[in-house]
Write a protein that binds this DNA or RNA. Structure first.
Length: 140
DNA sequence: CTTTTGACGCGTA
DNA sequence: CTACGCGCCAAAA
Protein backbone atom coordinates (compact mmCIF):
# COMPACT_ATOMS: atom_id res chain seq x y z
CA UNK A 1 0.00 0.00 0.00
CA UNK A 2 1.22 3.44 -0.84
CA UNK A 3 1.58 5.42 2.37
CA UNK A 4 1.39 8.73 0.57
CA UNK A 5 -2.00 8.01 -0.94
CA UNK A 6 -3.73 6.34 1.98
CA UNK A 7 -4.85 8.25 5.02
CA UNK A 8 -3.29 7.43 8.39
CA UNK A 9 -6.73 6.75 9.73
CA UNK A 10 -7.26 3.91 7.26
CA UNK A 11 -3.99 2.32 8.30
CA UNK A 12 -4.94 2.77 11.90
CA UNK A 13 -8.33 1.17 11.33
CA UNK A 14 -6.84 -1.88 9.66
CA UNK A 15 -4.42 -2.42 12.50
CA UNK A 16 -7.05 -2.05 15.20
CA UNK A 17 -9.24 -4.60 13.46
CA UNK A 18 -6.35 -7.02 13.02
CA UNK A 19 -5.61 -6.90 16.72
CA UNK A 20 -9.28 -7.25 17.66
CA UNK A 21 -9.52 -10.39 15.55
CA UNK A 22 -6.95 -12.02 17.83
CA UNK A 23 -9.09 -11.72 20.95
CA UNK A 24 -10.26 -15.23 21.89
CA UNK A 25 -13.97 -15.97 22.45
CA UNK A 26 -14.91 -15.58 26.10
CA UNK A 27 -12.23 -12.96 26.64
CA UNK A 28 -12.28 -9.18 26.56
CA UNK A 29 -9.71 -6.51 25.72
CA UNK A 30 -9.88 -2.76 26.27
CA UNK A 31 -9.76 0.19 23.89
CA UNK A 32 -6.66 1.46 25.63
CA UNK A 33 -4.91 -1.91 25.46
CA UNK A 34 -5.37 -2.06 21.71
CA UNK A 35 -4.20 1.52 21.33
CA UNK A 36 -1.11 0.83 23.42
CA UNK A 37 0.08 -1.70 20.85
CA UNK A 38 -0.11 0.74 17.96
CA UNK A 39 2.51 3.43 17.33
CA UNK A 40 1.36 6.93 16.35
CA UNK A 41 0.45 7.06 12.65
CA UNK A 42 2.58 9.24 10.40
CA UNK A 43 2.01 12.89 11.10
CA UNK A 44 0.38 12.39 14.47
CA UNK A 45 2.21 13.91 17.40
CA UNK A 46 2.83 11.50 20.29
CA UNK A 47 1.19 13.88 22.71
CA UNK A 48 -1.97 14.13 20.66
CA UNK A 49 -1.96 10.43 20.06
CA UNK A 50 -1.66 9.66 23.74
CA UNK A 51 -4.66 11.79 24.52
CA UNK A 52 -7.00 10.37 21.92
CA UNK A 53 -5.81 6.98 20.79
CA UNK A 54 -8.31 5.06 22.91
CA UNK A 55 -11.16 7.08 21.44
CA UNK A 56 -9.88 6.34 17.96
CA UNK A 57 -10.04 2.65 18.76
CA UNK A 58 -13.64 3.14 19.79
CA UNK A 59 -14.32 4.84 16.52
CA UNK A 60 -12.62 1.99 14.69
CA UNK A 61 -14.80 -0.58 16.43
CA UNK A 62 -17.91 1.28 15.32
CA UNK A 63 -16.77 0.77 11.73
CA UNK A 64 -15.81 -2.88 12.12
CA UNK A 65 -16.19 -5.32 9.23
CA UNK A 66 -18.32 -8.39 9.95
CA UNK A 67 -15.37 -10.60 10.79
CA UNK A 68 -14.23 -8.45 13.69
CA UNK A 69 -15.42 -9.54 17.19
CA UNK A 70 -16.10 -5.97 18.25
CA UNK A 71 -18.10 -7.11 21.26
CA UNK A 72 -14.91 -8.26 22.98
CA UNK A 73 -13.60 -4.71 23.25
CA UNK A 74 -14.79 -2.85 26.36
CA UNK A 75 -13.52 0.08 28.40
CA UNK A 76 -10.80 0.12 31.03
CA UNK A 77 -13.35 0.02 33.83
CA UNK A 78 -14.41 -3.40 32.65
CA UNK A 79 -17.73 -2.06 31.47
CA UNK A 80 -19.53 -1.75 28.17
CA UNK A 81 -19.40 1.85 27.06
CA UNK A 82 -22.92 3.32 27.26
CA UNK A 83 -24.64 3.72 23.90
CA UNK A 84 -27.59 2.37 21.92
CA UNK A 85 -26.76 -1.27 21.27
CA UNK A 86 -25.01 -1.90 24.55
CA UNK A 87 -27.52 -4.63 25.40
CA UNK A 88 -26.63 -6.54 22.27
CA UNK A 89 -22.93 -6.37 23.12
CA UNK A 90 -23.60 -7.73 26.58
CA UNK A 91 -25.75 -10.53 25.18
CA UNK A 92 -23.03 -11.55 22.74
CA UNK A 93 -20.43 -11.64 25.50
CA UNK A 94 -22.65 -13.58 27.87
CA UNK A 95 -23.24 -16.11 25.10
CA UNK A 96 -19.46 -16.59 25.06
CA UNK A 97 -19.42 -17.18 28.82
CA UNK A 98 -18.40 -13.75 30.02
CA UNK A 99 -20.01 -12.90 33.35
CA UNK A 100 -21.15 -9.44 34.44
CA UNK A 101 -21.55 -8.49 38.09
CA UNK A 102 -24.46 -6.60 39.61
CA UNK A 103 -22.81 -3.31 38.67
CA UNK A 104 -22.59 -4.36 35.03
CA UNK A 105 -18.88 -4.87 35.21
CA UNK A 106 -16.63 -7.66 33.93
CA UNK A 107 -13.80 -8.94 36.10
CA UNK A 108 -10.80 -8.14 33.93
CA UNK A 109 -8.59 -10.33 36.10
CA UNK A 110 -10.62 -13.29 35.02
CA UNK A 111 -11.93 -12.44 31.58
CA UNK A 112 -9.34 -9.98 30.38
CA UNK A 113 -7.18 -11.19 27.49
CA UNK A 114 -3.45 -11.13 28.14
CA UNK A 115 -2.80 -9.66 24.70
CA UNK A 116 -1.06 -10.87 21.54
CA UNK A 117 2.03 -13.04 21.90
CA UNK A 118 5.45 -11.50 21.42
CA UNK A 119 5.73 -13.58 18.27
CA UNK A 120 2.53 -12.20 16.81
CA UNK A 121 3.59 -8.66 17.57
CA UNK A 122 6.95 -9.24 15.96
CA UNK A 123 5.40 -10.74 12.85
CA UNK A 124 3.21 -7.69 12.48
CA UNK A 125 5.97 -5.19 13.11
CA UNK A 126 4.46 -4.05 16.38
CA UNK A 127 5.84 -3.53 19.84
CA UNK A 128 5.12 -5.03 23.22
CA UNK A 129 2.69 -3.02 25.37
CA UNK A 130 5.41 -1.77 27.69
CA UNK A 131 7.70 -0.56 24.92
CA UNK A 132 8.26 3.08 24.16
CA UNK A 133 6.38 3.35 20.89
CA UNK A 134 7.00 7.06 20.66
CA UNK A 135 10.08 6.49 18.55
CA UNK A 136 8.39 4.03 16.26
CA UNK A 137 6.18 4.31 13.24
CA UNK A 138 3.48 2.18 11.72
CA UNK A 139 4.95 -0.65 9.60
CA UNK A 140 3.46 0.60 6.36
C1' DC B 1 -17.27 27.84 7.07
C1' DT B 2 -18.13 26.75 12.81
C1' DT B 3 -19.68 24.04 16.73
C1' DT B 4 -20.77 19.85 18.88
C1' DT B 5 -20.25 15.24 20.09
C1' DG B 6 -18.00 11.02 21.10
C1' DA B 7 -17.69 2.50 21.42
C1' DC B 8 -11.68 6.67 26.19
C1' DG B 9 -8.46 7.01 29.92
C1' DC B 10 -5.96 9.30 33.40
C1' DG B 11 -5.10 12.45 37.07
C1' DT B 12 -7.32 14.86 40.96
C1' DA B 13 -10.50 15.97 44.56
C1' DC C 1 -15.55 4.06 45.74
C1' DT C 2 -17.64 8.36 42.76
C1' DA C 3 -17.35 12.86 40.20
C1' DC C 4 -15.34 15.66 37.10
C1' DG C 5 -11.94 18.10 34.07
C1' DC C 6 -8.99 17.68 30.35
C1' DG C 7 -6.84 16.20 25.98
C1' DC C 8 -7.18 19.45 21.29
C1' DC C 9 -8.53 14.40 17.34
C1' DA C 10 -12.36 13.43 13.57
C1' DA C 11 -16.76 12.90 11.94
C1' DA C 12 -21.19 14.77 12.07
C1' DA C 13 -24.35 18.50 12.35
Amino acid sequence: MDPSSSSPSQEFLALVWEIARQIPPGKVFTYGQIAALIPPPEGVEPQSYGAFKARWVGQAMALSPDDVPWQRVINSQGKISPRPGQDRQRALLEAEGVVFNARGRVDLKRYGWEGPSAEWLRDHGLLSPDSDYRQQRLPF
